[in-house]
Amino acid sequence: MRPLFSQTSVAAVRLVIAVTFAVATMLIDSRLDGLQIVRLAVKTALWPVEQIAGFPANATRAVADWTQTRTQLAGRLESLAIENERLLTEQLKLHTLRAENSELRRLLGVRERVNERLLQAQIERVSNDPFVHRVTINRGIAAGVQIGRPVLAADGLVGQIVSVYPHASEVLLMTDSTHQLPVQVTRTRLRAVAFGTGQLDQLELRNLPATVDIVAGDVIETSGLAGRFQPGIPVARVIEVIRSPGQPFARVLCEPAAELSTLTLLMVDVSDEEVGQ
């Protein structure tokens, strides 16, 4: 094989060519989104590598499950039974609310969400890049997952599907610095946009006037604008409102409702009907 850099000038020329190609690829991928097919093909080819890499963790988890004592299992069963009772009671209330909601929608002539369906998924791996908040889940095209579908956890919104593969999907967490989400404050119905900050425990509402009626503790939920997320999904809680003298805008920092750093199970919203009127 020919040496990589035999002479300095040749080396510099090759470097310039390589850098040009790399930057062009980056721009095509990020601005035009034109390389999804490459990503899909490579990700599919990497499936065996990911399975091998995940084997030690899966095996450890399996061994831990096998070695649980009878007392531990009995304790877990009891707590699950209590939780089940609580959820059944909640479900009774939910049935009533659903019926009321359906009636109100009918009276208002608003389209109803039909065949609402949540698909359970498990996180297989997370990106090891500190600035990319993406996780891979074990459900893909075969399970009916599509790009743009909302992903939820028990406590609230997690993010959305950005790439789908035959048996896996990638979820962009709402804290990723490229993610923006239309939200509203539950108490005042004030609309805003929640920006990911690149930190797992922080979202930011930007461009709100300094005089805005928002306080620490306010709950933030999806507004349903843009049609991607159902309105009313808990997103975050306001932890700090920074109003600097002389600044026209306030900085509103929020903590995500879902504990993003310890997620294992997720729900993908694969309902048939989109939100809208």
């Binding site: 850098v19 790399a22 930057v23 980056m26």
Partner: peptide, 13 residues
């Protein structure tokens, strides 16, 4: 790039 979820071309650069 695919495993990290970064933009394609970053690691080539």
């Amino acid at each position: 790039d695919v495993l990290y979820g970064t933009v394609l071309g970053l690691h080539s650069l």
